[in-house]
Amino acid sequence: MLPVVVVHGGAGHVPKEIAELSTIGVKEATRTGYAILQKGGSAMDAVVEAVALMENNPRFNAGRGSVLNVKGEVEMDAMVMDGRTLDSGAVSAVRRIANPVQLARLVMEKTKHLCLTAEGASKFARSMGVPEVPEESLITDYAKMRWKKNLEPDANPVECQMGKMGTVGAVAVDKDGNIACATSTGGMINKMEGRVGDTPCVGCGGYADNNIGAVSPTGHGEAIMKVTLSRLILFHMEQGKTPEEASDLALTYMKERVDGLGGAVVVDPKGTWAAQFSSLQMSWAAAQQGELHFGLYHGEHFVEPVQENI
C-alpha cells in the first residue's frame, strides 16, 4: 500500500473549462510527488514538490494565481508538517515569494520557530537567499478581474470564493512509513490586509503524525479554524474511524456547527487514503500501487495507470 500521495487543488464550484485545467494540475502534481516517493524520497520531499508545482500553476489559488486582498495585493499562507517529529513550519501573510511552501519548510528546518509572519517572514526569506519576485508575476488577469468584481458593495466574497478552486495541499506516506502534509494558499478573495486563514495554523490547515496519519484541508478558512478541522479528523481516526469516515464526520460537523463548507485529503500510516468534501466540487488525485486516482464531483472516481500521459 506504500508509498502513497494524495493531492487537492481546492474545494469549491468552478466552470467546466477551469475544472478540467484543475484536474490536469492535480494529476500532474500527484505524478511528481509519486515519482519522488518511488525513488525512495521522503514524504516531506513529495508533498513540498507537489504543492510547489501547483503554486507555479496559475490555475490554483496559491503562489502565482493567488487571489488578491482588498487592496489588490497578494499575501500568502503556507505550512508543512513532519509526522515523525511533529516538527512544523509555516509562513503567514508573506509577500513577493514564488513558493511559500518552500519558505515554510525553511522555517521548520532553519529556525527554532514554527511560524513567521508578514515582514518577519520576508526578512527571513532574504536571509536565506530566497529571491524576491515582482508582485505582478504572482497576479493573473483572472485574479484581478475577480478582485474588482468583489469591490462592489453588494459582493459576497465568501460565496464567490467557492466559485474558484481554492487552496492547494498534499499528504503522503513514504516507503519508510513516514508521513507529511503541506498546504499553500492565497487566502480569501478581497480579505483584509493581514488576514491569516487556517492554512498556516497547525491542526487547522494541516496536521501530520506518524502514529495517526496526515490531513490537508481546503474550504472556508474561518470555519476550518473554528473546528480545528485537521486535528479533528485525526482525532476521529484515533478513535478507530477510517480516513473516509473521519473526514465525513468532521466535515458534517463543520457544516452543522459553524455553517462552513470544505474538503480534505487524508492518509493513515497503512496507506489508506481519502479525498472527501462537502462543497460541490474538489479537484483531487491520488497515486498508489502504480495507479492514479482522480475526481472532481461527488461519487466521481477515475483510475488510470500513473505512467499514462507522461
Binding site: G120, K191, G194, V196, C201, G221
Partner: peptide
C-alpha cells in the same frame, strides 16, 4: 470582521 486572525501591519491598521 469576517476573519479570525489579523497579523502584523494589518492588525495595526
Amino acid at each position: 470582521t469576517d476573519h479570525v486572525i489579523l497579523t502584523d501591519r494589518g492588525a495595526s491598521m
